[in-house]
Amino acid sequence: MKAIEVRDLRKSFDSGRIRALNGVNLEVDGGEFISIMGPSGSGKSTLLNMIGALDVPDSGTICVAGRDLSRERDLSRLRAEEIGFVFQLHNLIPNLTALENVEIPMFAVKHENMEERAMELLEYVDLADKAHRKPTELSGGERQRVAIARALANDPSIILADEPTGSLDSRTSQRVLRKLRELQEDEGVTLVVVTHEPDVAAMASRTIRILDGVIVDDGY
């Protein structure tokens, strides 16, 4: 089964003056690990946001986990059920503890035993001992691992990561990437990573290259 199917996707900004995506087609198999590379402004983050139902295209279709986004009445529910997000700047809420940050996505699906589940996930990313610390009390790498735990809160089938190591040093980046790849290999999660770093892209099984809103190499 295809985890992600994109057909003739187009998106413009600034009243059509900026064409971010210009007829993008992409297929990603379930359990696949792909990276998306391209220069700044090439459209890679816009594409990721479209796949993640964080923005809507001008035209074209997107199917995620077999669900046509254009036909979904509640995109926030779909995001909560199917997709986990990891961002470059982790996007943790500063006045909440690591444990509370991991619990946040569970409210959308009325998850039972949220605290127990959050602790399991913090243990998975080797941060159970930091569960009650706030983001300001954690290192950059620790914050990013909390973000990975949060992304896994509702057992998503797809994880979308936008420059997940962009603010980290090389050693910490490798640790974060190993954890993401472990998820993909052991749990069968579909992993899509946007990056500008060749060593990060090299960890994927396939690298998509995008330029000026068009995929110029689909990695096959």
Results as ranks from 00 to 15, higher is better:
T195F: 00
A118C: 03
I208E: 09
P57S: 03
I208F: 05
H111W: 02
F33N: 00
T172S: 13
L127N: 13
A98D: 10
D29W: 04
V200Y: 03
Q88I: 09
A131W: 09
L89Y: 10
R133W: 13
L177G: 01
I208R: 09
G16H: 11
G84F: 07
M37R: 07
E163R: 01
Q144N: 02
L122P: 00
R67A: 09
K134S: 12
T46E: 06
S35V: 00
L191Q: 05
G38M: 03
D29G: 11
M1I: 09
H90D: 08
R209M: 12
Y124R: 15
G38W: 01
D212I: 11
Q144G: 12
E112S: 12
L211K: 13
A3N: 14
R143M: 14
A147S: 08
G213D: 03
I93M: 15
G60D: 08
I208L: 08
L26P: 12
V176L: 06
H90P: 02
R17G: 15
L138P: 13
G188F: 07
E182P: 03
S139R: 06
M203L: 15
E182F: 05
S35H: 05
G66Q: 04
G23S: 11
L160I: 04
D199V: 09
V64R: 06
S205R: 03
A118S: 13
Y220C: 11
V125E: 15
